[in-house]
């Protein structure tokens, strides 16, 4: 009680103190939403920053290289005496590696999704699905190492003339990397098809396979197509696997056993070479990155549009 006596204050003092406290908390209470809004706007600023830097530096690039030459040129010689900047060899490399990756990831991912959603017993699925998702968690640099030191020598047994750096082996490994993405998203789409539809088909005498192909897949098609489009977007933006295993040939060719450079690998090569700021080759980084950004953005928006617009509601 002695301590209380020492700190004794009049009631009016206590009220005053309480008021001060209230005032502080009220101010804090009013400040918090705006503080949070500022924090939330950082993500918007990131987008603005990306778009601004890509556009601003690309404009500088297109002052030196006519925009038409860039998009229609088949010759890319950034380091020669008379440098030429045609993006088509890079686009070609990107598209070919993406096609190879999707030839692997599309069918295998889709069939994995069918197995997991339609055939697998619950306990098997509970084991297989997380295991498959480990594939998506392996850093891409590890896949690049694997493609370069293991898959390419393996492919040499089938194609003896394959080069040490080629587009085929990173394309295949990129496909393996994308399998879990397509499998998981397609499985989600197929699992959300109501069971009554399956039961209807089975009751009419169709086998599980017929039910899957004639009922479940058509009903889940929007989700499945969206997962493919997202897979393509992922393949276009993938960097380290191709940077390591597909080399740096800038020739416009269609030989998949030869070296080819993708847009992403070009950025790694040029930026890693310490291109001096202000040179045309430095600005070409941004023009290529802008092209890449636009491609992946279109794919992502397309995936969203497909899954929203064509979704069947049950």
């Amino acid at each position: 009680m002695a301590a209380n006596n020492k700190n004794r204050m009049s009631v009016s003092e206590m009220i005053e103190q309480q008021k001060q406290k209230r005032k502080f908390f009220n101010q804090l209470e009013r400040l918090v939403p705006s503080l949070l809004l500022i924090i939330a706007s950082i993500s918007v600023l990131t987008t603005v920053g990306i778009i601004y830097t890509l556009f601003a530096e690309s404009v500088a690039f297109f002052r030196n290289v006519p925009i038409l030459d860039f998009f229609t040129g088949t010759v890319l010689k950034p380091l020669s005496q008379n440098p030429e900047f045609g993006v088509l060899p890079l686009l070609n490399g990107t598209i070919i590696s993406t096609v190879i990756a999707m030839l692997v990831a599309g069918p295998i991912g889709m069939m994995s999704a069918i197995y997991l959603s339609e055939y697998a017993p619950d306990n098997v699925r509970r084991v297989l699905k997380p295991l498959l998702e480990i594939l998506a968690g392996v850093p891409t640099i590890v896949y690049g190492f694997f493609a370069f030191t293991f898959v390419t020598p393996l492919l040499r047994m089938i194609f003896p003339s394959i080069e040490a750096t080629n587009i085929l082996s990173p394309g295949i490994i990129m496909g393996v990397m994308i399998i879990p993405m397509i499998a998981s998203l397609s499985e989600d789409a197929m699992s959300s098809v109501p069971n009554s539809m399956r039961e209807g088909a089975l009751a009419l005498g169709s086998t599980k396979l017929e039910t899957t192909f004639k009922v479940v897949i058509p009903a889940a098609l929007s989700g499945i197509v969206a997962s493919f489009v997202l897979g393509i977007s992922r393949a276009i933006g993938e960097t380290m696997i191709v940077a390591i295993a597909s080399g740096s040939s800038k020739n416009f060719s269609f030989d998949i056993t030869g070296s080819m450079q993708t847009m992403t690998a070009y950025i790694v090569e040029v930026a890693g070479g310490e291109a001096a700021a202000g040179t045309t080759i430095y600005y070409s980084l941004y023009a290529v990155a802008l092209t890449l950004f636009v491609f992946t953005l279109i794919m992502n928006l397309l995936a969203k549009y497909i899954s929203r617009k064509f979704r069947e509601e049950y």
Binding site: I50, G237, Y286, A289, T296, L297
Partner: peptide, 21 residues
């Protein structure tokens, strides 16, 4: 919804583009 859309679009930007940023 603008901020939410923006975040989901950012998730799809290739990592190399962040490098350039």
């Amino acid at each position: 919804s603008f901020i939410a859309t923006n975040i989901s679009n950012l998730a799809g930007v290739p990592s190399i583009v962040y490098g350039l940023l």
